[in-house]
């Protein structure tokens, strides 16, 4: 977002425009304010929002600060799910014992999210709700068929991540709703989540990334879901390509053709669409190599 727009501004701004600030005491309080003000936005860790404000890419009427609300950073097992509260920071998640036992790949993924200072402030729910197509967590949520828990005026609802991301920074969050947590299905027997990405520098947004949800039976890939990020306007699910892989194994040319027909690769400053297509194809190989290792 920043990279798309900053040059249009001619480098004018580094201080945010005026906004009002509301420190929410509880979730109902925050919902009430948000429901009544279309231009209000939620402030959690602020790692994406604050730069956008300072560059005046975003001029909201009000920041509803939810960071002081207690009970929104739980990390617990909830039935067949790992529940991560929206306000758990990336650092909280990386250090959590339950996560390291039940979903170790999440820790590997978070190591690639920016740098420690940002991970200390940035929140799990913030990343899911912001829906940056180049970010890891939205793709993870889609790959694992996670449920995103939203609180609104009429109570809580749950929506599958596959239905949550609608377009560039566009999600299914309603005006009166706030993301309060994410539920990741616990790994089943023979199931593994694998992740890889290619960045120019450590901690950067990837040129292309892949999260694979793999079901193994007797050491063979039985089922496979491939979700790419930093490739298009939202997490890109490549079901046709996954099916092709299950039929024919890794064949660079075939998989590349399939990906190119299935995903609308959008180039950016660091990698053209052609580069992203190549890297996406290579990422499948890298994931398979990891699986074999």
């Amino acid at each position: 977002m920043i990279r798309l727009i900053c040059y249009l501004m001619g480098g004018k701004y580094m201080k945010a425009a005026n906004f009002s600030y509301y420190e929410a005491k509880n979730i109902q309080d925050a919902i009430k304010i948000k429901a009544n003000d279309e231009e209000a936005v939620i402030l959690a860790g602020g790692q994406s929002l604050l730069p956008a404000l300072n560059m005046r890419l975003s001029s909201p009427s009000c920041l509803i600060d939810i960071s002081k609300i207690s009970g929104l950073n739980d990390i617990i097992i909830d039935g067949d799910y790992l529940f991560i509260g929206a306000l758990a920071t990336h650092s909280d998640v990386m250090r959590n014992e339950i996560v390291s036992q039940k979903m170790p790949c999440l820790i590997d993924i978070l190591k690639m999210v920016a740098h420690p200072a940002i991970r200390n402030k940035g929140t799990h729910g913030g990343s899911i709700a912001y829906g940056d197509p180049a970010a890891e967590l939205p793709a993870l949520a889609v790959a694992t068929n996670a449920e995103i828990i939203l609180s609104g005026q009429n109570g809580d609802r749950s929506i599958n991540a596959n239905d949550f991301y609608l377009g560039l920074f566009e999600t299914a969050i309603n005006q009166d709703e706030i993301v309060v947590g994410i539920k990741y299905p616990l790994l089943k027997q023979g199931q593994v989540f694998l992740f890889d990405e290619v960045c120019r520098r450590h901690g950067d947004y990837a040129m292309a990334g892949l999260i694979a949800n793999i079901i193994l039976s007797s050491n063979k890939v039985n089922d496979l879901k491939l979700v790419f990020f930093a490739t298009g306007d939202k997490p890109d699910v490549a079901d046709k390509t996954a099916k092709l892989f299950l039929q024919t194994g890794y064949d660079y040319d075939q998989l590349k053709n399939s990906l190119s027909s299935e995903i609308d690769f959008a180039g950016d400053l660091n990698s053209s669409s052609e580069m992203k297509l190549h890297l996406a194809t290579i990422l499948i190989k890298k994931i398979i190599n990891k699986l074999e290792a």
Binding site: R3, C6, Y7, L8, H115, R201
Partner: peptide, 23 residues
């Protein structure tokens, strides 16, 4: 990075890449 019209396209520390400790 400039476009054809002379607009600088990466005028932020997120997009202008300098080597960091890992590099």
């Amino acid at each position: 990075v400039y476009d054809d019209q002379g607009n600088m396209q990466n005028a932020t520390m997120a997009d202008y890449l300098v080597p960091m400790a890992y590099e």
